[in-house]
Computed example of a mutant assay.
Amino acid sequence: MTTDTSSFLEHLQTQRARYRYRLPSRPDAGRFIDQLMRLLFPVTQDCKSVSQHVEETYQALHDQLTNLICPLEKNLTESPAIITERFFERLPAIYDSLLLDAHSIADNDPASIGVEEVVAVYPGFYAIAVYRFAHELLQQGVPLLPRMLTEYAHGQTGIDIHPGATIGRSFFIDHGTGVVIGETTIIGNNVKIYQGVTLGATYVAKSMAQKKRHPTIENNVVIYANATILGGHTVVGHDSVIGGNVWLTSSVEPHSLVFHQHQTDVRLKSLESLEPINFVI
């Protein structure tokens, strides 16, 4: 072994000793989410995962979550067991909230054949569900794991929702690919967004970490595809419609309609340049 290699390995050993976090298993985090979804929504079970043992599955998930949190114990103010217990106490309320989300998608998407289809296959519903689980853990002071869960959903769906965002009841994401919802975003009730929407910050600076950097979307707002809404001071008033491809960095009043102005110029050839047309009768 060369001197350079030995020095490099010593550096890695020192770094390992000083590392702040021990990460939970990423594959285990993904398995926990998918098994939790199958417990809450039997329609998501495929032919290889179907299980009728609800209590047994519930206890297994309880143990799995405790095991996921345990590596982070030094960074917690409460024990993993207490956090897990509180999460599962909150699970019925999260479940009720997810049913509202599913009904919102089913009721507002003409292509949907019903709530079961939404729950079983819609990426928007899946991403919202994982966000709501992760948000609850973040509220309890769990570091890293909430982001790990939402990044798992991001990889599965193309929808990036930070677990720190605040999202109200009956949330609708249609299609979903490319949606980005930043950490300090506040979204009210009955909001609908489409693919490619970004709710982001006007600029990125580490000094802004503890400040509100992302917009507030009030109740009953619709945001169409590829709209970009930026800034912590930007408020979209209730019952507004934001059209596709809009770039918005300032607030709009309630009941506003904001759209991207599109202009089409039709250029016609002069009559002299046109080829003669021969009619055959």
Rank of each mutant, 00 (worst) to 15 (best):
I159S: 00
G182R: 00
I229W: 00
H162R: 04
K48H: 15
L68A: 09
Y126C: 12
P276T: 13
S240R: 01
P42W: 06
L138M: 15
D265F: 13
A106S: 15
I161K: 01
V280R: 13
P123D: 05
G176K: 06
Y126N: 02
L271V: 09
H175D: 08
E73N: 02
Y194D: 06
S6H: 15
S273Q: 15
E56M: 04
E89M: 09
V252T: 03
Q64D: 13
V197T: 06
A134R: 10
E10Y: 07
I167D: 03
I242R: 02
T5P: 00
L257W: 04
N220Q: 09
R86S: 06
I94N: 02
L23E: 14
Q45I: 03
R132S: 14
N278M: 07
I181F: 07
G243L: 07
R18F: 00
V241I: 15
L91N: 08
H233Y: 08
T228G: 07
H103G: 01
I33T: 09
V222C: 07
Q156S: 10
G200L: 10
L99C: 11
H11E: 14
C70N: 11
V191H: 10
V235M: 10
I186N: 00
E10F: 09
V115G: 03
E56R: 05
Y95H: 12
Q64E: 13
K212M: 09
P215M: 03
T84M: 03
P215L: 04
S104P: 05
Q210P: 00
L23M: 15
K212Q: 01
D107Y: 02
I193F: 12
N245C: 12
V266K: 13
E55V: 00
L68M: 14
D63N: 15
V252Q: 05
F8Q: 07
R26A: 06
M148F: 01
L99A: 04
F279W: 13
Q210C: 11
Q195I: 10
Q35R: 15
A227K: 03
L23H: 11
T249A: 08
R22S: 09
L76E: 10
T66K: 10
V222E: 10
V43H: 09
Q64F: 05
T216A: 01
A201N: 05
N189Y: 09
N220K: 06
N220T: 11
E117D: 11
H238W: 10
S273G: 13
R16Q: 08
T184N: 08
E136K: 12
A153H: 02
E275W: 12
N278Y: 11
S51A: 15
V118N: 04
F32N: 00
D34K: 03
E85C: 05
L99S: 03
R26K: 10
H62I: 07
I159K: 00
R20D: 12
Q59V: 13
S250Y: 10
I83E: 00
N245H: 13
E136Y: 05
Q261I: 04
I187A: 07
E218I: 10
L76H: 07
H175T: 15
G30N: 05
F279P: 02
G231F: 08
S25P: 02
R31A: 09
T84D: 01
Q13H: 10
A102I: 04
I167C: 00
T3C: 08
G155K: 12
Y122C: 07
V119L: 14
L99Y: 05
Q139I: 02
E272F: 15
L274Y: 03
E55A: 14
L248D: 02
T84L: 05
E55L: 14
Q139V: 01
G30Y: 06
G168C: 07
D34A: 03
